[in-house]
Write a protein that binds this DNA or RNA. Structure first.
Lengths: 138, 138
DNA sequence: TCTTATAAGACTAATCTAGTCCAATAACTT
DNA sequence: AAGTTATTGGACTAGATTAGTCTTATAAGA
């Protein structure tokens, strides 16, 4: 359906929540309850966020996660790539996927590449700050 | 993966092929062989294309399908909607899907709506003619 | 009537998605 | 040191979607 998956939706919501808390940490439980996100799932999402450097974990009592980057510095493309891999509006655009039997005579790869780039640019130029303020950049 | 499905890829390739034949018909078999698309699958795709008025069937010997509209008149949004429903970059954007438990406090619906509209506009303003000439309109 | 071709429905395997469950580890608090 | 809070990481599952097949029926020209 040409859509971003739940992990991305939840992940963005969680990061925006963390941003509101400024320097304070928020535990997965707190975020899950506040944002109505299944806790075990959000836990997984935050692990990925940590591995990509978006947040820092704080163990122990009163622990949780802290945002390590500014909302203006994180764009939608990064988040999307983290949870869904590269944006490929058509399957044949994948560089490692040469399975498409029609490739040699495919009439749409080139124009689809252009379209793909437009979408990438749109995502790349939309920061979480833009999202928080209900804007997109382009 | 934020991508258009195979039916859409194949469907576009088939319509572009039909356009090349101008007023002549092309059978599903001919298109399938020429474009390396599984025949039974393409048959299904063309049935849908017919039901949406993109092509006209011609029964019997030397039959096949004829393009009923000009490439400049068909845009990518129509094709996409035909095979994948409306473009919804986030699940919560669906009007009938109120399952998202975070809806009341969701911080991203509004900005995602804006982003969604950008993508819709991009698809809508890309005609098959644009694709055939390896351009996008915006 | 034979042949070519579309029409339509049921069916399947593989993949992806969303989500759960459990045991382990880290570190703060008392 | 012990208990508690919280992250870590792996395996696992149900359900949906995707891509594709198979079969039977129907339409119509030769």
């Amino acid at each position: 359906m040409l859509r971003v998956n739940k992990k991305i939706e939840y992940g963005i919501i969680a990061l925006l929540y963390l941003a509101q808390k400024e320097e304070q940490t928020a535990s997965v439980r707190e975020m899950a309850v506040s944002c109505s996100i299944p806790e075990a799932l959000l836990s997984k999402i935050m692990q990925t966020m940590k591995s990509k450097g978006f947040v820092q974990p704080v163990y122990g009592n009163q622990g949780g996660y802290k945002l390590t980057r500014s909302l203006t510095d994180i764009n939608l493309l990064e988040i999307t790539q983290t949870f869904q891999g590269p944006i490929q509006v058509a399957e044949c655009l994948s560089s490692e996927n040469h399975k498409c039997p029609a490739k040699a005579l495919c009439t749409i790869i080139s124009p689809m590449t252009v379209l793909n780039q437009k979408i990438v640019t749109l995502f790349e130029s939309t920061s979480l700050e833009n999202l928080a303020n209900r804007k997109t950049a382009i």
